[in-house]
Computed example of a mutant assay.
Amino acid sequence: MGMLLAFTVVPVKAATFVAWEVSGVPFGDTLNVRKFPSGNSQKQSAYPNGTVLQMTGKCTGGVNLFDISGQADWKQKQAVRYRWCQIWHDPAQIGNFVTGWVYGRYIEPH
């Protein structure tokens, strides 16, 4: 008896990123990037103020950066202030890109 397998191609926004930057981190400190959206999760990397991040668009609480991108900057910042947002980065700077999470209080639209 043969088995029929059906595959559906679904377009993915994986190659599309929203640029936000690190902002509001206290002087001399950096924004930690975590493996999971939690302050207790493994630290992957850290970036200083002004670093432009490649955001996947996904934030906790169902916030999508693509959906809010047309709003005023202050409204976008307000929407992510208490959420974790996912980035696409290369922590070791060797071409090995992975996803990580940053706390929304320390990022703003670029």
Rank of each mutant, 00 (worst) to 15 (best):
G28T: 11
C85V: 05
A15Y: 12
G24L: 09
M55T: 09
V80T: 04
L31Q: 10
W88P: 00
W101Y: 05
G50A: 08
V12M: 12
S45A: 15
C59D: 03
Q76I: 07
F66H: 11
G24S: 13
S23L: 08
R34M: 08
Q78P: 00
C59W: 01
I107C: 12
A19C: 01
K43I: 14
G95C: 04
V80H: 02
M1L: 12
V12E: 13
R83W: 02
V63E: 02
V10H: 08
V12P: 01
F66G: 05
V25W: 07
L31F: 07
A15L: 13
C85P: 02
Y47I: 07
P26S: 09
Q54D: 08
L5A: 12
R81N: 04
G100M: 08
W74L: 07
P11D: 14
Q78F: 08
L5H: 13
C85E: 02
S45R: 06
T51N: 05
L65A: 07
R83Q: 15
V52D: 05
F17G: 04
S23H: 12
G61R: 06
S41F: 04
I87S: 01
T8L: 14
V10Q: 10
K13V: 05
W84V: 08
I94M: 03
T30Q: 15
S41K: 03
E21D: 11
Q76A: 00
H110Q: 09
P109C: 05
A14V: 06
F66Y: 15
S69Y: 01
F66I: 11
W74D: 13
I107P: 07
G24F: 11
L31E: 06
V10K: 12
N64M: 02
R83P: 01
T56P: 08
Q44D: 10
S23D: 14
G39W: 09
L4I: 14
Q78H: 06
C59R: 02
T30S: 15
I94S: 02
G28I: 11
V22Q: 10
K35G: 09
T60P: 00
D29Y: 12
P48C: 11
Y103K: 03
W74P: 00
R83M: 11
G39T: 09
G50W: 12
F17I: 07
M55S: 04
C85S: 03
C59E: 01
V98Q: 13
R105H: 11
C59N: 03
K77N: 02
V18A: 10
P26A: 13
P11F: 11
I68M: 05
H110F: 10
Y47H: 14
